[in-house]
Each structure stands twice: as structure tokens, then as C-alpha cells.
Amino acid sequence: MMLMVSGSQAILAEDGGVYHFGFKKSKNGEPASIDQEGFKELLDKHGALFLGDQRQKNLYLTFDNGYENGYTAQILDVLKEKKVPAVFFVTGHYVKDQPDLLKRMVNEGHIIGNHSWSHPDMSKISPEQIADELTQVKEAVGMVTGQTTMNFLRPPRGIFNDQMLRVSRELGYTSVFWSVAYKDWDTKQQKGAKYAFDHVMAQLHPGAIILLHSVSKDNADAMAQIIDEARRQGYTFQSLDGLELGITGLP
């Protein structure tokens, strides 16, 4: 049986504790919530993140990079101009296909995170396979960029279970989910920069971890305006390296 939660993207499968991350979106600056999802204790148990300190108007910008669609360089240009740090979660395909962009990310002060080698459902593979998926990305990124550590993981498609979180934590990873997102990954359903801007700004809240996909032209075109308006509202963009809080966003 599947249980859909109103106002959320979550799916809870009653087949051994497999979850698809979802959350109640922020409105009017109030924090996003996972209280209704049924997996808060599991994320807390394994030190996973979905937002930061709710008392601070900090934002954490993250991108999922499964493949390149021609817009990451434009996004990097804006981040460099605006002096904003980001985390780019990459797959094995991206590492092999885009070494120059990976080098640029690291050279310009961004973090490269792990999005797995082959983008599998990591709740359905063995601990040994999980380790292999993550180790391949870490080693390949290191060979290309010289980045010697890799501390952050975003599970493909946001699918997770206790084993996946436990094994990745034992390997030194913090799983990073999100508290701001919208349907931006469909390259056939791009609706313009204003659409991206409106959907991101409507969800902003203190401590937000923002998930965007670099394949989206809308995101690339809206990036400068999103950053400028967020700063005008008193937000600052911080590196995920500085976020060492649990999923509740409390000290």
C-alpha cells in the first residue's frame, strides 16, 4: 500500500521502511516541515540534513548534476560574480563527461558531493554495492580535480532506507536532502526564468537547503535574480561545510 501525504512529495512504502523524501513546503517564511512524513526519527538517527538553523537567515544552495545540458557554466558564472558557494552533487556519468566543469567547480571554491556512480535506487542494493557506488565517484572526482575529501551525499531520487543511511554514514557521508524545491528537472517543461524565480522565492525560509537541477534553463536564467532578491530580504548564502546541525535545524 502507498500513502500519499497531502501537500508533500513523500511516498511511504509499507514494504520494509523504504522512503521517498518529501516535505511540506514553506509559506510566508515559515520553516518547511517533515513532521508529517514518518521518517524524521530515521534521518535524525543517521545525522541526515534537510535544513539548517531556523534562527539564522542562511541559505544553502545545492545542485544535482546527473548529466550536462549546457547551463552549468552559466550558473557558475553567476555564482562567481555574486560570490555564492554551492554544492554540486554529481554522478559517474557527469564525472566522465564533464571533467573541465568539475575542475572549475573546485577551483572556484564549490563543493562536489556524491550522487552515486550509476544513479540506482540505493534502498535496493547491498551494503557492498552502496560502498562501490560512492567510492567510485569519490575516487574519480579526486583524480580529476584533486578534491581529497567528499563528505556529502544526495541519494538518487531522494529514495532511502535505514540501511542506505547507515552504510553511507559509516563511510563518512552526511546525507543531504532539501527544504526548497520545485519541478525543475523536466527539460521539456521549462516555463521561463520568472517561473523559477517565483517558485524558489515563495519557499524561502531561514536555514533553507535549496535543491535545483542544473539541466534547467529556467534556473540558469533566474539565478542572478534569485540571489539578489534573497539578499535584499536579508538572507546570506553559506557553504554546506559550515552546517553541522541535525535535521531539526536546532542546536
Results as ranks from 00 to 15, higher is better:
89 F>A: 06
120 P>I: 09
101 L>Q: 04
92 G>K: 09
126 S>N: 07
113 G>Q: 13
88 F>E: 11
110 H>E: 06
89 F>E: 05
91 T>H: 04
114 N>D: 15
109 G>F: 08
121 D>V: 11
120 P>D: 11
109 G>E: 09
88 F>W: 14
117 W>S: 10
123 S>Q: 03
90 V>I: 12
92 G>N: 08
101 L>S: 04
87 V>K: 09
123 S>E: 02
97 D>Q: 13
103 K>M: 07
121 D>F: 08
127 P>F: 09
102 L>F: 05
96 K>L: 06
109 G>N: 11
135 T>I: 10
92 G>M: 04
116 S>R: 01
106 V>G: 03
116 S>E: 03
122 M>T: 04
102 L>T: 05
104 R>S: 06
99 P>H: 09
87 V>T: 15
95 V>D: 02
91 T>D: 02
89 F>C: 12
136 Q>V: 00
129 Q>R: 15
113 G>W: 10
111 I>R: 12
118 S>P: 00
127 P>S: 13
91 T>A: 08
101 L>E: 01
110 H>S: 07
115 H>D: 11
97 D>T: 07
100 D>Q: 14
136 Q>I: 00
127 P>A: 07
110 H>V: 12
107 N>R: 14
126 S>K: 05
112 I>S: 06
125 I>C: 08
84 V>R: 00
128 E>A: 08
132 D>I: 01
127 P>H: 10
133 E>N: 06
128 E>P: 01
98 Q>R: 08
101 L>D: 01
133 E>I: 02
102 L>V: 11
98 Q>W: 01
84 V>E: 01
134 L>H: 07
128 E>G: 11
99 P>F: 13
93 H>N: 13
92 G>Q: 08
98 Q>T: 03
117 W>P: 00
113 G>K: 11
125 I>H: 10
98 Q>G: 00
84 V>D: 01
135 T>C: 03
103 K>T: 11
138 K>E: 12
121 D>H: 15
117 W>A: 14
124 K>F: 02
86 A>Y: 03
111 I>G: 03
129 Q>Y: 01
127 P>R: 12
115 H>Q: 13
92 G>I: 07
121 D>P: 03
117 W>C: 02
120 P>Q: 09
87 V>M: 14
135 T>M: 08
132 D>R: 12
117 W>I: 06
100 D>C: 00
108 E>W: 02
93 H>C: 01
91 T>G: 07
99 P>W: 10
110 H>K: 05
96 K>D: 11
136 Q>N: 15
117 W>E: 05
124 K>T: 10
124 K>H: 10
95 V>A: 11
133 E>S: 07
131 A>I: 04
84 V>Y: 00
90 V>C: 06
117 W>Y: 15
